[in-house]
Design a protein around this nucleic acid. Structure first.
Lengths: 252, 252
DNA sequence: GCATTTGTTCCGATTTATGGAACTCATAAT
DNA sequence: ATTATGAGTTCCATAAATCGGAACAAATGC
């Protein structure tokens, strides 16, 4: 067994909820001689993979690991990061999720995460929705200025009443729609973008109107919002508005 | 040179802004034979420390590293995390920073970070301020309900006009004070808490009123806010309100 | 198609890791 | 005060990994 594998096993112990380790914990949890564990932790400390907590014998991951996490996220790109967030929300609540891009007056899903609930909205990757007529699309339009939106919709009837709705999204940080694109289906969407590549995507969760109460809905919004906020912070998205979870009854 | 040290050197390359690496980049940047680099990256991949990006030859940190970053933060606790954020802001802008706790109607600094500017507010750890009369204190009070605040200030004159000020903080997510506790000194404060331990701390930057323009002030607020937001997200702080950077002129 | 760049594999010599036991150090119990 | 107890480190011969150079293979560019 190579040292690297052992070191990796030690690091993996941190994954399962434990935030610090001692030599003995490592020997018992990995089943290796304590002489090895002792030397291994020392070597990992010297290499900066671990650091001791204060002057105790407890170890935690080294500071270097913070940079790694952000390098990992950076290399994913916005779409990838958005996908990770939506996947996590889908996993947790069982409802279908999308990541979508806007092209002109339309939006297309570029990644989809089928829900697991018995009653769920079937995923439909590649289906094109109108940007003005979907929560996802409006979050992406809301990232543009009114002038830009007007340019996209020059002389078109869809513009009617659109700008105030976008203002509302700019204020709240998210969009919600109930039975708009599909009967019986509600959607929550939040947009986030990468200022360096100019890519903006929308994170969206869709669910059957009938089976989701206000509390679940707010929880999903909160989950989606916290993921999107992290992405926006990591990428330095200045246009992002941190969604504010509304009080009960003020939703929509 | 041990493998662990080499592996660590490779990981460290990610720290300096680069989000992915190839074998040749590693050989040149670390100055090691490419045979070694090739085997090293393979071993690190097998150990889960790295993963390849798609089916290209580029490598990025493995997903495991995400867990490590959060284990690191968790082991710091709120006070430690707040300290890291304040230290970073202090470092960047040169102004003095504090982390404070509230006890009853007073707040005390538990960590301080002396500024580096020629004209700066001298740090004063252990100095007690009134909670109602300092930006720091009010951010902490704003985390409580009106009823709880009233209980703390039962029958006391300080309660006059306090609740509306707290409401303003709850709405904006931060507190600002100009020449309040100390003449010539302004302060920006944001509170964050750990729901599991019930600990709440306030992150605060203090600076001479005369030398900081609106732009710098907004930048400091943004820096403090993004750090506090990350902490709140990591810990699941439901009471946290993500600060919204106000438009010019609407500040305070 | 050929040249070039990039990555992998092979080899013996050398370095490093391994695991059992002996040892130190601090803390808790008698 | 003395002795157990447990955690952590160090010692040693053996076993296994790494090293660097060069030959080899596989992409990429012209």
């Amino acid at each position: 067994m190579t040292v690297l594998q052992n070191a990796s096993d030690v690091l993996r112990l941190f994954g399962s909820g434990c935030s610090d380790l001692t030599v003995t914990e490592v020997t018992t949890r990995l089943g290796i001689p304590k002489a090895n564990a002792s030397r291994l932790l020392k070597a990992m400390r010297d290499a900066g993979m671990l650091e001791t907590i204060g002057d105790t014998r407890r170890h935690r991951p080294g500071r270097m690991m913070l940079d790694l996490a952000s390098a990992f996220r950076k290399s994913l790109g916005v779409i990838g990061q958005a996908g990770e967030v939506v996947a996590a929300v889908t996993e947790r609540f069982g409802h279908t999720g999308y990541v979508s891009l806007r092209e002109g007056r339309e939006v297309t899903a570029v990644a989809d995460f089928p829900g697991t609930n018995d009653l769920r909205v079937v995923s439909n990757i590649g289906r094109r929705l109108t940007a003005h007529g979907s929560a996802t699309g409006r979050t992406l339009l809301a990232r543009m200025s009114d002038a830009e939106v007007q340019a996209v919709y020059a002389g078109r009837p869809e513009l009617d009443g659109l700008l105030p709705r976008l203002d509302a999204i700019r204020a709240s940080g998210f969009a919600y729609s109930s039975q708009e694109s599909t009967p019986g289906v509600d959607a929550i969407a939040i947009a986030v973008g990468d200022p360096t590549t100019e890519e903006a995507v929308s994170l969206c969760i869709v669910y059957p109107h009938a089976v989701v109460g206000e509390d679940d809905r707010d929880e999903m919004l909160a989950a989606l919002a916290s993921g999107a906020t992290r992405i926006a912070r990591d990428l330095g998205d200045a246009k992002f508005v941190a969604p504010r979870i509304p009080e009960k009854g003020l939703f929509a």
